[in-house]
């Protein structure tokens, strides 16, 4: 499946010459990047370079000042595009999990299905359980976020995003807030997703993960993409010295 040429004809996400500034701070200074179906791209680079901002542009949590973005055939930066509809198709996982604290794990996964996709309760319940199963947490369905470990929270957050049947998943440093011994379970889930063919854009400092799972590693610095390529090339024969440093 991963090698099906037909499926790869059209990018899932296409960013074209994206600019973004916050006040006088220019954060993105002309970034172009495409994700092909089932591709896993890992974004690396020093902090403050605009990796998160770039990710947030993909689901319009941040609006680019200039440049265009396509989600499959739809140009989402075109005027009149419904942002909420765009975000339904793009799953996002945050560094701080951001689970809904007043809801159980199961309800966290269900709420998007019932309130946004208007699925009926019973179907949503069944699907939410499946998604929790997928991240290995069906047995924690009735736990509140406060009763879960960091790793479990992040897996629920992944299940919540998956519940919306996204066409692409964005991960913004999903393991940075975790104790080192808990990162493994989250990375394993992400690896499994990649293996299942999910298109993924991941900001991460986990070089092991990048090496094993990424199709492409993109190195950003100072608002630009300074280098991109398959992990072997990026880590073993970097053109830019910094790539090695961040290893």
């Amino acid at each position: 499946m991963t090698n099906s040429e037909a499926a790869k004809t059209q990018p899932i996400v296409r960013l074209e010459d994206i600019y973004k500034a916050f006040g006088v701070t220019e954060v993105l200074k002309g970034v172009s990047l495409s994700l092909m179906p089932q591709e896993v791209v890992v974004l690396v680079g020093p902090s403050g370079t605009g990796k998160s901002t770039l990710l947030r542009c993909v689901n319009l949590l941040s609006r680019p000042d200039k440049g265009r973005i396509w989600l499959e055939e739809l140009e989402i930066t075109a005027p009149g595009v419904n942002e909420d509809k765009v975000r339904q198709r793009v799953g996002m996982v945050f560094q701080e999990f951001n689970l809904f604290t007043h809801l159980t794990a199961l309800e966290n996964v269900m709420i998007g299905m019932t309130k946004v996709l208007k699925m009926d309760k019973r179907a949503a319940h069944a699907k939410a359980l499946e998604e929790l199963e997928r991240v290995g947490l069906a047995n924690r369905a009735d736990h509140y976020p406060a009763q879960l470990s960091g790793g479990q929270k992040q897996r629920v957050a992944i299940a919540r995003a998956l519940g919306m049947d996204p066409h692409v998943m964005l991960f913004d440093e999903p393991t940075s807030a975790l104790d080192p011994e808990l990162t493994g379970e989250v990375l394993a889930v992400m690896q499994k997703l990649a293996f299942e063919g999910m298109t993924m854009m991941v900001v991460s400092h986990e070089m092991g993960f990048a090496r094993e799972v990424a199709d492409r590693v993109v190195f950003m610095e100072g608002g630009y993409i300074v280098e991109a390529g398959p992990p072997e090339q990026m880590f073993d024969h970097p053109q830019v010295d910094r790539t090695r440093v961040s290893q």
Binding site: L61, D84, R87, F94, E96, T101, A157, A161
Partner: peptide, 29 residues
Amino acid sequence: SGGQMTAASAIGMSRWQAIRHIILPQALR
């Protein structure tokens, strides 16, 4: 926390849906 609104937006909730289903229930508590 602001992350709650962001997370609600990220699953495609409109602002009003996020307020009603995510923010308000927590605020009430």
